[in-house]
Write a protein that binds this DNA or RNA. Structure first.
Length: 614
RNA sequence: GCCGUCGUAGCUCAGUUGGUAGAGCGACUCUUUCGUAAAGAGUAGGUCACCAGUUCGAUUCUGGUCGACGGCUCCA
């Protein structure tokens, strides 16, 4: 961490203390949980008993915080023994702090793994055993804390309380529900303003809002929550994206397969998913037999069955199956959100079956496709190498894991992809590379992924015959370029703010007639026929509205090209296309012949031309 | 699933301290035939999310269900 981010971290953390100071003053009965730093600010979990905070309380708390800041009290650090700390917690009537300290005393540094140890007064001593804890005091407020803090309460930059929400004590839903008060904080007013502006921009781009306005997808209470219905426009988007993904994959030796959407539950018992995710599977009961079916939550076990349908030779590896049909996961209600979290998911999924010595090349091929994909989509990304930690939730031979993680890192380096390692983010069956895509307003999202899997080939006992006639176990690689289409669309709609490049635009050209006379309408229809011959998607607006109003309607739908047709065009055979302002290929200052215009647009669409900024 | 907020026309919203509701946009009809972001007039459209309860009477109060939003938690 640089000095600047270090200082920002200290400021945010100090603000958490200042907020706690203010709240203790306003509600002395408050019981404090923990108050860590998060991405753009800080929060503090607080148990206020029956008092429910709302947005209206923020002004009061902020005012009280301002007093603390104005006092400019020094943050004084003190170190005391655990036993004394426990006495302090009892005296201060802080049961949550007391619980932390008791755990700390009982288990040393291994305690409270579910919490960020930086927020506890936990000093990791070389021996691994904690005997002392540190406290910070500002004015008459003292809190168990490791720090770091700024020198005094006056040095904390600018902040704003944003929201309050429920949060379980120590993240466990069996524990008490506390109130999490969340604030953002920056070094300067300018940075805070920028952040607030970004949030506003994000709200304006919200894919749920744009999805409705641009007529891309809808939900129906009768169908159910988390089950989006894609309109013709939305389906065009999906199909174009899928077409591109499949084209890339086909060019790299992937073959499409087709599987049913239901399967006997035994398939997932064998794969290990039933144990791990059984609660999130939709069950389907047969009325003809005693079979218990489930809706497929994934495709890999099916693909394994295709692989396993006959003996395989080392010569035919790698075998690469792709598949993008819908999958179903019974996500928890409260987690559903627009398209970004749904219960019906389609992924541009594929599974590679290969030999150990082919892993590196396969990973490189997939990374190459990811680069192609996001270059055309005009989105920057970096790779998160999701490795295991030392917990016991992972299956398979640790040695293989280690070897695989090394290979993955080597490939990423070799292909010159920016990356970082995230321990503990691996799937239970193997390490993976997750692609973190940055959108136009700077937010990062996980989209593409490639994952190594040693576990399923073993569980299903699939083999190939090597050069010596011996059975060997292949390795599996799971991959997705876009990831879930639903999720990707949510990201991409917000990235582009609905201004899709020509190859993805559901409606590429809109033809507006200046009047409803036969000659005008016939000319427009002739124009449309020529355009459709070139594979363009367009519509004619010959409604009885003014030209201005029809232009406005096309603008609101973010149609890339709008063409007005009237006596002038019919006479000259030339068009003056109105070009959506972010488009760069066609210049709308000059009239163009019908043929030139259409071939330019068709060429742009076919070439998947994108522009450089949204 | 949990905590909190919310649900009035296709959309955005107003309103009813309990006596079954209104605007703008959109749709439809007519007039207008128009030159690059809203032409004018009229008409239709609502079991006030759903189901119970209280009440002479519920869209309004109470309870439950469903759905949405902000978080928590989870994410193959």
């Amino acid at each position: 961490m640089s000095d600047i981010t270090d200082n920002l971290h200290a400021m945010r953390h100090s603000l958490a203390h200042i907020m706690a100071t203010a709240i203790m003053k306003l509600w002395p009965e408050a019981k404090l949980g923990v108050g860590p730093v998060v991405e753009n600010g800080f929060y503090y979990d607080i148990d206020l008993g029956k008092k429910k905070l709302s947005d209206e309380d923020f002004a009061t708390i902020e005012k009280e915080m301002a007093k603390v800041i104005k006092a400019d009290d020094k943050f004084e650090k003190s170190e005391i023994s655990i036993d004394k700390a426990i006495d302090w917690a009892k005296q201060a009537q802080q049961p949550y702090k007391l619980e932390l300290l008791n755990d700390l005393k009982r288990a040393g540094t291994t305690v409270a793994k579910d919490l960020d140890s930086a927020e506890l007064g936990l000093e990791a001593k070389s021996g691994g055993k904690v005997d002392k804890v540190s406290f910070y005091t500002n004015g008459d407020f003292t809190d168990l804390c490791r720090g770091p803090h700024v020198v005094s309460t006056g040095k904390v930059g600018v902040f704003k309380l944003m929201r309050v929400s429920g949060a379980y004590w120590r993240g466990n839903e069996k524990n008490a529900q506390m109130q999490r008060i969340y604030g953002v904080a920056f070094a300067s007013q300018k940075e805070l303003d920028q952040h607030l502006k970004m949030l506003e921009e994000a709200k304006a781009r919200d894919h749920r809002k744009l999805g409705q306005e641009l007529d891309l997808f809808v939900f129906s209470e009768l169908v159910g929550s988390g089950l989006p219905l894609f309109t013709p426009r939305g389906t065009t988007l999906r199909d174009e994206l899928l077409g591109f993904s499949e084209e890339l994959q086909r060019n790299n030796g992937f073959e499409k397969v087709t599987i049913p959407h239901i399967t006997k539950r035994e398939l997932y018992e064998k794969s290990g998913h039933w144990d791990k995710f059984g609660g999130q599977l939709f069950l389907v009961k047969s009325q003809e037999s005693s079979d218990q079916f489930v809706l497929k939550p994934m495709n890999c076990p099916h693909h394994i069955q295709i692989y396993a349908s006959r003996p395989r030779s080392y010569k035919e590896l790698p075998i690469r199956y792709m598949e993008s049909t819908m999958q179903y996961r019974d996500e928890k209600k409260g987690e559903l959100n627009g398209l970004s979290r749904v219960r019906s998911i389609s992924i541009d999924d594929a599974h590679v079956f290969c030999r150990l010595d082919q892993i590196e090349a396969e990973f490189a091929t997939i990374m190459g496709m990811i680069k192609d994909m996001y270059s055309v989509l005009d989105m920057k990304f970096r790779a998160r190498l999701s490795f295991r930690d030392d917990s016991d939730k992972y299956l398979g031979d640790p040695k293989l894991w280690e070897m695989a993680q090394e290979t993955i890192e080597a490939v990423t380096k070799k292909l010159d992809v920016e990356y970082f390692v995230a321990e503990g983010e691996a799937a239970f069956y193997g390490p993976k590379i997750d692609i973190m895509v940055t959108d136009a307003i700077g937010r990062e999202w996980q989209c593409a992924t490639e994952q190594l899997d040693f576990v399923q080939p073993q569980r299903f006992g699939i083999t190939y015959t090597d050069a010596n006639g011996k059975d060997q176990q292949p390795v599996m690689i799971h991959k997705a370029l876009l990831g879930s289409f639903e999720r990707f669309l949510s990201v991409y709609i917000e990235h582009t703010a609905g201004r899709f490049p020509i190859w993805l635009a559901p409606e590429q050209v809109r033809v507006i007639t200046i009047n409803q006379e036969d000659t005008t309408v016939e000319y427009a229809e002739g124009f449309a026929a020529k355009a459709r011959k070139l594979g363009l998607r367009l519509s004619i607006d010959n409604s009885n509205d003014t030209v201005g109003k029809k232009i406005r309607a096309a603008e609101l739908m973010k149609v890339p090209y709008t063409v007005v047709i009237g006596p002038e065009e019919i006479k000259s055979g030339k068009l003056k296309p109105r070009v959506r302002k972010d488009m760069t290929v066609l210049d709308d200052s000059q009239p163009a012949s019908v043929e030139d215009f259409l071939s330019t647009v068709a060429h742009e669409a076919k070439g998947r031309v994108h522009k450089s900024s949204f």
